[in-house]
Design a protein around this nucleic acid. Structure first.
Lengths: 197, 197
DNA sequence: TGTACATCAGTGAACGCGCGTTCACTGATGTAC
DNA sequence: TGTACATCAGTGAACGCGCGTTCACTGATGTAC
C-alpha cells in the first residue's frame, strides 16, 4: 500500500470509530487518546489527520449523517407521502434503533448536547438537520419543511427519551406512543393539503 | 442563624445553582469545584451536603422538576383537554423557554445525555418523566399516558433541536412547526375519543 | 540496479488543566455543668 | 453568668486520572540521480 493510501485508510478508521463513539457516548465520551489507543495508534499522530478535536467531531458528525441517510431514507417509491412518513417513523422509533445508537441518527444522540458544543459542531448539526428535512422525499414534490421538522422533532425526541429511561416497558411504551403520534400527524398533514402521488 | 439552619441554607444554595447549571451546561458542565467556588465556598465542604457528585445531579434534577412543574403546569381550569395541551405546547415551545434553559424543563436539556448517565440520574429522569405524563392534568379524568408521552417527546425534541441550531430563523421555524404539530396532534386525540369537560 | 537524500505518518514524553474524592485541620456554634 | 468541652460546617492541600494539544524524534516509504 502506498503511503498516501495508508494515510487515507488511517484517517477513515479514526473517522469511523469517532462517528460511532460520538453517537454511543456523546461528545464528551469521545476522547482523542482513547480513540487512538483503541485503533492501535498513539494520540500524538492524531494531529496529522485532524487540526483539532472539534474538527474531528464535526467531520464525524457528517460521516454519521451520510451513514444514517443510507440506512433510514431508503424507501420504496410507490408510496404516498403519508405512507413514506409512517414507514420512516416506524424505522426511526424501533427497538433496533433505540438499542444501537452507535449506528443510528446523530440528531437523537446529540440533540441536548449540541447547544453546548462549539461552532463547528453546531454548524455541522444544522447542515444535518437541513439534510434530513429536505432529503428522502420525492424531489419532484418537496414536502413542506415545517412538517418534516415537526416529524423529526417527534421522532428524535421520542428516541432520546426512550433511551434515557431505565424501565424497558416504559421505554417501549414511549416508542409505541411516538410511532402512533407520527402516524396521526402524517394523516393530519395529508388531510389538509391533499396527498400527492 | 442556628448552625443547622445555616447548613440547610448552604445545601439549598448548592442545589439551586446545580439545578440551574445542570440545565444550562449539562451534566458535564457542572463540576463540584467550580460550583462551590462560585458559591464562595471550597470544594472539600461539598461532601458534608452530598455523598457524591451523582447524588447531587439526581437531587438537582428533582429540584429542577419541581420548579418546572410550577412554571409550566399552572393552567386555567376551564379549558378542554385539547386546549390545555395546546397552551402547554405554546409555553413549552416558546422563544422564552428556548433562550433560558437554566430555568426550563430538564428533560429537554438532558434528553440525549441521560442515557449515558449513572443509575441515580437515570432513575430521577424516569420519575420526572412519569410526573410530567400524569401531572398537570385533570385528576378526575386522567389523560392516556401514551398521548402525553408523544406530546412531551414532540415538545422536548423540538426544543432541543431549536436550541442546537445556530441560525435563529431556522430555530424559530422549528419552534413554530412543533407548536403547530402539537396542536394538530391534540386535535387528533380529541377527535377520536371525544373531549371531556 | 544501487545509493543518497527527502518526506512525513506515526511515536511517546511532556505541557497545563479540571475532574471527583479524601482527609487532617480549624474555629465558631452549641451544650453541660 | 462563666467556664470547659463537644460538635461539625467548612477549609485547603493532596490523591490519581483523563483531557486536548505540542513537539522533538524515528524509521519506513518515496524520489532523484
Amino acid at each position: 500500500m502506498k503511503r498516501s493510501e495508508q494515510k487515507a485508510a488511517t484517517r477513515a478508521a479514526i473517522l469511523d470509530l469517532a462517528s460511532r463513539r460520538l453517537r454511543a457516548e456523546g461528545l464528551a465520551g469521545n476522547g482523542v487518546q482513547r480513540l487512538m489507543r483503541d485503533l492501535g495508534l498513539t494520540h500524538g499522530g492524531f494531529y496529522v489527520h485532524f487540526p483539532s478535536k472539534q474538527a474531528l467531531d464535526a467531520a464525524a458528525l457528517e460521516a454519521a449523517m451520510a451513514e444514517r441517510a443510507q440506512r433510514l431514507d431508503a424507501l420504496p417509491q410507490a408510496l404516498t407521502r403519508a405512507e413514506r412518513r409512517k414507514l420512516r417513523a416506524r424505522r426511526y422509533l424501533s427497538r433496533q434503533h433505540r438499542d444501537h445508537p452507535e449506528a443510528g441518527c446523530p440528531l437523537a444522540a446529540l440533540a441536548s448536547e449540541a447547544p453546548r458544543a462549539g461552532a463547528e459542531v453546531r454548524d455541522a448539526f444544522q447542515r444535518m438537520l437541513a439534510e434530513v428535512v429536505t432529503d428522502g422525499d420525492n424531489p419532484q414534490d418537496p414536502a413542506p419543511p415545517s412538517e418534516e421538522l415537526a416529524l423529526l422533532a417527534l421522532a428524535a425526541g421520542g428516541l432520546a427519551l426512550a433511551r434515557a429511561v431505565p424501565d424497558p416497558a416504559l421505554s417501549d411504551a414511549i416508542l409505541a406512543a411516538c410511532r402512533d403520534a407520527a402516524g396521526r400527524l402524517a394523516d393530519a398533514y395529508a388531510d389538509i393539503q391533499g396527498d400527492p402521488q
